[in-house]
Write a protein that binds this DNA or RNA. Structure first.
Lengths: 584, 584
DNA sequence: CAACTTCACACCTAAGTGTGAATG
DNA sequence: AACATTCACACTTAGGTGTGAAGT
């Protein structure tokens, strides 16, 4: 099965000497990652969270990672010369307040919004060019957490991740000037723990840690998304732990104080909510609803701890092929040891120290920082392979691993950058339509039924799924237009042929489809390439066990890659990889 | 000024032998109207309202006006063979209840929704073809009304109409299957009497009569709208009079009984609203919120007057070029005399008779009805000319009239149809960008500033504007996508260069722009062609004075054409007409 | 038991209604 | 005086909050 091969297509000129077509017999995973101008790592890394912060700092780009000059110097295609997106997080002070406490986001069956709302300001786009703006939320690590003694501690390995859907901003596609004219809000995105959700909400695991990501794609049609370059921005302060009920009372209070919808729970002085500590009663409302909403983020909030009003949290940015670049664990860069997660491995998210350090470290850095050479530190043990997670008949699953070598030869192209190499490598490998799950990108409610999967999701491949969490599908949005979707609500309840994007539709869009035997009706194939070296590594304080290279018959111990490591739309590489792994 | 000429472009094959390019020196207004299979006018027309009903009946098409066979027989382009839209009005029983009383719609400064909501079911589209669905609201006649002695009477000539914006359904463009999958609601459209409205609401005159229209356009991009064929559907029962406060208590009661938001005013038996008459207390809620919303309109409402539950109100449909076909007054067809409106001219809207007659007449007609030959009855006095309404410098205005002869030679092409001639004639004359006002088609609030116009709108061209009310712009919608709009909110407050659609933008869309001297920054040029013969003439009970042919220096007595007579996007013909009227 | 999840609920925001007095 | 318009208001729908008891 899955023998069909589909070549890459590389858009425009590339900075790296890459073949436009990857030989089918060779599991080549091109990893072209644009890195900031490098960062120095001289300070000692004493604890995980601190290391986390450092690694984030390494990719610090102050919202403008790609310098036009450097783009030119590496032969950036003309197409990319006229934009240079700079992204800033709205309400970053409020986000930071939460982050210091260890942000929690409630997930409910019916779907819950995020608070603070994820909202960004975008600058530097080409005014007349159309862009698609998206966000997704990916697991940060392989851990399950618990809140104990007023702190979050690791409580074991992560549960399998559900596929993470891309939330395409409802205004997509729109011209740069439109995106830049006002903050881009993603408040319509909802979080749920309902694995059977049909609304297209983002399904998260409770007590797991997640990182929202923001993506800019230069594309005038959502159908072109899989073939387009993603510029990915990560704001470390938006990291959170999903919960079904708030664990940290301080977080609860922060929510009540700042979310207008929770106004009813505010302490009006009449005794309600006396349970809460008197701390953090200062109102941050202005941060979110006056300052923040106007795009101005001058910090007039001086009631927080010292340093709380640091105005600058910069995002991490990846300018990458959505199919290629794969962030890897912070741990892999830092050290190859300590592969197994300790039960008492504490992520110091709830402690102000590391976060503040990050902030402080960053805000005076205006130059791009050097990056470590990841080509050496990464994947030494060969455990970082390609994970192919397949549904064979809807009941059985297995995994295949590609060799790291074949990837590295592509990844490093003669020496990984320590300087930012702005680059857009576009892979057109998305021919296996089950992986191109556009069903959600439709304004109707998300009613696709995964016939061969539902009712079994909880019991299947508990860890193997942790690599399935990125870029598979796109979230349905009211208002998403210009999507030539052959998917009708009336068709979605059919138990077979679950892939909603009709062959005819794709082909009429110039997309050639070559179904792969045994997979064409199953939308849950995912590929987790790992060789792609990565620098901008946010929130990777825990390293997953990479001991599963030969354990692909045992779902429980499969090699896991955090979805967070995967680029958006990464899984569209699936069939390419599948094709390159015959007989495994 | 305005000497530039821009040729037509005709899309596809045309049923009429029309030149693809109209010579610039000749004021040719191509009028190619697709008419239903004709209707017989044998019954005497005794009163305006009755004539109204007849004329509506004449175009009665039962939602499926264009028969594929007849389309083929007239050489319909292949493009149109795979769809045959049938449109039905949702909640038509409720609409009819209102219509019998004389529907009133409140208009407020802040914008008011319509109730009942304008909602249609569409069938017969090509599933995989993209369509844009729109609606607009156009003046029915040239009258101002007053409610006196429990009836609506004419109270003088109409006030000048503000330009009527096209409300593009937020889901546009979408594929046929998507439009057909559920009722298409236009509840987001808001009515206002605020002539300075910046939201893109539809600006109406209080105490004036209006007719909503629904349009189907086969286009995958909103930019193509002006060059596309509009299929226009009119549901006579949706006619209404705009009011700032309800005049007819029965209408108030009907609203209260059926609009959930007005539930607070319902008579709970405890004495509230005892002012209202006991009549019409029957709840029509089910009509709108259970039956109607499910698309089924079985009448279980038997509490109304006899005949109230007639299930069938069919729409009028025009399949026409948006630039060409021009409905004219019912009066013009019926008779050329009686050009001046009587002060006591009573439109029998509030009386059940005519409306019921219309309904009754129509519902047993399943065949297409013959149409009168409009080429003879129309424009006898030559007063039906081309109205060019220009803003010279923002303060002065004048009008130019084209000759009917030159139009008729095009219109009639050797004998006007008395049978339906399904036809799509597309005019690409929309090169004068001030007339192509797409500024509204943008999801941001409508903030365009008409620098040379605001503060003067009330005083300018009081009657001349009545012909400006159709098809000029497109309403801004949250969610309208795929519109390559060069319009930025930040640009909109610039006092000059008011046209928001940048030259670059249009040109990048393949639209060549040739600004016309002195007009390029003024978006309010409108053209009201009249020679275009028309059959399907809904709600034309009053005829405007056509005595203004030589009065173009006197705004008060300018020739008026009801916006209702103008096809959508008609004004995109403006510069063509302007070009063809040199020196006038 | 302890940890986690679910649910009805009161309380909010946001916005769509006609009212009736005030205004023009 | 008659008429048309505006506005604060109470009431509604719709849906976003955390609560705290109950369930797993």
């Amino acid at each position: 099965m899955a023998m069909a091969y589909h070549p890459f297509q590389v858009h425009g000129a590339d900075a790296f000497p890459l073949p436009a077509v990857i030989p089918g017999a060779q599991p080549s995973l091109i990893s072209a990652l644009t890195l900031p101008d490098a960062a120095s790592f001289s300070d000692p890394l004493l604890e995980r969270a601190a290391a986390d912060a450092r690694l984030r700092a390494a990719a610090e780009l102050r919202g403008r990672p790609v310098h036009p000059r450097s783009m030119k110097s590496v032969g950036q295609p003309e197409q990319w010369l006229d934009d240079d997106p700079k992204v800033t997080l709205e309400s970053k002070d409020l986000w930071s307040e939460f982050h210091k406490m260890g942000t929690e986001m409630v997930i409910t069956k019916s779907g819950r919004r995020m608070f603070p709302p994820f909202k960004v300001c975008v600058e530097g786009l080409s005014e007349s060019t159309k862009y698609i703006l998206l966000m997704d939320i990916v697991a940060v690590d392989d851990c399950r957490y618990k809140f104990h003694n007023s702190r979050w501690t690791v409580a074991g390995k992560a549960d399998p991740e559900m596929p993470k859907r891309m939330y395409i901003h409802p205004d997509s596609p729109s011209k740069g000037e439109q995106w830049m004219s006002k903050p881009v809000a993603f408040h319509k995105l909802k979080l749920t723990n309902n694995i059977s959700d049909k609304h297209g909400f983002t399904i998260l695991n409770s007590m797991h840690k997640y990182q929202p990501r923001f993506h800019i794609v230069r594309a005038n049609d959502i159908m072109k998304l899989p073939y387009s370059t993603f510029r990915t921005y990560v704001f470390p302060e938006t990291e959170f732990i999903a919960v079904t009920a708030y664990q940290n009372e301080k977080i609860t209070q922060l929510k009540i104080d700042n979310n207008p919808f929770a106004k009813g729970f505010r302490d009006t002085g009449n005794g309600r909510r006396e349970k809460r500590s008197a701390l953090h009663k200062m109102s941050l409302r202005e941060l979110l609803f006056s300052k923040a909403d106007q795009g101005g983020a001058d910090s007039d909030d001086s009631s927080g701890p010292p340093g709380a009003s640091e105005p600058f949290y910069s995002p991490l940015e990846l300018v990458s092929s959505p199919l290629m670049s794969t962030p890897t664990y912070a741990k892999d860069i830092e050290s190859d040891s300590d592969l197994d997660l300790e039960e008492d491995d504490v992520l110091k998210v709830g402690l102000p120290g590391p976060a503040r350090t990050l902030t402080t470290n960053l805000r005076h850095e205006d130059v791009l920082q050097p990056m470590p050479d990841l080509s050496k530190s990464n994947n030494k043990d060969g455990s970082n392979g390609i994970i192919v997670h397949r549904a064979h008949d809807g009941n059985e699953y297995f995994m295949e691993l590609g060799s790291y070598e074949s990837q590295r030869s592509v990844n490093n192209d003669g020496g990984l950058p320590t300087k930012l190499r702005p680059h857009s490598l576009t892979c057109l490998s998305n021919f296996h339509y089950p992986t191109l799950d556009f069903s959600g990108v439709y304004r109707q409610p998300f009613v696709r039924v995964r016939a061969s999967f539902k009712k079994r999701q909880l019991s299947m491949t508990p860890t193997g799924f942790s690599c399935l969490g990125v870029g598979p599908g796109f979230t349905p949005l009211p208002g998403i237009n210009d999507f030539d979707n052959g998917f009708l609500p009336s068709q979605t309840i059919q138990p077979s042929g679950a892939f909603p994007l009709s062959r005819h539709t794709l082909e009429s869009q110039g997309v050639s489809l070559s179904p792969i035997d045994g997979m064409s009706s199953y939308p849950y194939h995912r590929v987790a390439p790992i060789g792609a070296s990565v620098s901008a590594l946010p929130a990777c304080s825990a390293t997953p066990s990479l001991s599963g290279i030969h354990q692909h018959r045992n779902p429980k111990t499969w090699l896991r890659l955090s979805p967070y490591q995967l680029p958006p739309s990464f899984t569209s590489c699936q069939n390419l990889l599948t094709a390159s792994l015959p007989g495994r």
